[in-house]
């Protein structure tokens, strides 16, 4: 009974994580500028690892493998903000202007990738 419950929960977490990853990937392609794409990248970098690693840990239970997976998760969650911040800061320093509310409404919502 518990066994089945864990399997179902793990499957749900894995599939939801995969779905969020794809949505984030679509956002990376679809959004209009570097900074907004960074937010979409953040979706694939935070909730996808959380759910997928969570699902895998549920499958292996108390095992050395779980420790390693949680270490991967911890490391990803500590480093992705740093990488995002470094990218945003470097883009700012390079003088790339963020698309603002007004600029976006002036040019319609046609993104640069059409």
């Amino acid at each position: 009974m518990i066994e089945t419950l864990i399997t179902v929960l793990s499957a749900l977490m894995l599939l939801t994580g995969g779905a969020f990853a794809v949505i984030g990937g679509v956002g990376v392609v679809r959004f209009p500028d570097v900074y907004t794409r960074l937010h979409a990248g953040g979706v694939t970098d935070t909730i996808a690892p959380l759910l997928i690693v969570g699902g895998l840990v549920l499958q292996s239970g108390w095992h050395l493998l779980s420790f390693k997976l949680l270490l991967i998760l911890l490391f990803l969650l500590f480093t992705t903000p740093t990488a995002s911040h470094a990218t945003a800061r470097a883009a700012m320093a390079a003088g790339i202007e963020p698309v603002t509310r007004d600029g976006r409404s002036a040019s319609g919502d046609s993104s640069s990738n059409t």
Binding site: G24, V26, G27, R30, A40, V43, T100, R101, R104, S111
Partner: peptide, 26 residues
């Protein structure tokens, strides 16, 4: 923080599916 991350993930995911929602601001 994990709770906040999940909530804002759902918000951003909805914005991806409907890009008219986004209002980038500094």
């Amino acid at each position: 923080l994990v709770g906040q991350v999940i909530l804002s993930n759902i918000a951003v995911a909805r914005a991806v599916l409907d890009p008219r929602r986004i209002q980038p601001t500094l």
